[in-house]
Amino acid sequence: MSFQERLKRIIQLYDEILRTGHRTEIIRELQEEDDLFMLLLYSDMLGIPNPAFYYTLELYPHMLEKFHDWHTRMGMDKSPLTGFRCC
């Protein structure tokens, strides 16, 4: 094993040690960002005016798979959107 490979492995190990303590915080923060994005994406359908509706309209087909996970995480047992079934 060359010096560069050992150094690279040491840096990877150091990075992993630093991330271990904060892994849950990172996951929670990424989930909060995802929840906020989903709220922005579907806010017009929920009755909240969305100034970026025209730009987010094309994202709906790509986000349908995540919609069920989002509304159950927000505490809604069934889809809050009328005419839109995911469960």
Rank of each mutant, 00 (worst) to 15 (best):
R6S: 15
R6Y: 09
R6M: 12
L7P: 01
K8P: 03
I11Y: 02
D15T: 11
E16Y: 05
L18K: 13
R19M: 07
R19C: 01
T20P: 00
T20S: 05
G21W: 11
H22V: 09
R23E: 10
E25V: 13
E25S: 14
E25M: 08
I26Y: 08
I27P: 00
I27F: 02
R28T: 11
E29M: 09
E33D: 06
E33P: 00
E33V: 01
E33G: 02
D34W: 11
D34N: 14
D35W: 07
F37A: 13
L39E: 10
L39M: 12
L39G: 03
L41C: 06
S43Q: 12
S43A: 13
D44W: 06
L46N: 09
G47R: 10
G47S: 11
P49D: 10
A52T: 07
Y54A: 03
E58H: 01
L59N: 12
P61W: 05
M63R: 05
L64D: 10
L64E: 11
K66R: 15
K66M: 08
K66V: 04
D69H: 08
H71F: 12
R73Y: 01
R73K: 07
P80F: 01
G83R: 07
F84W: 14
F84H: 12
R85I: 14
R85E: 15
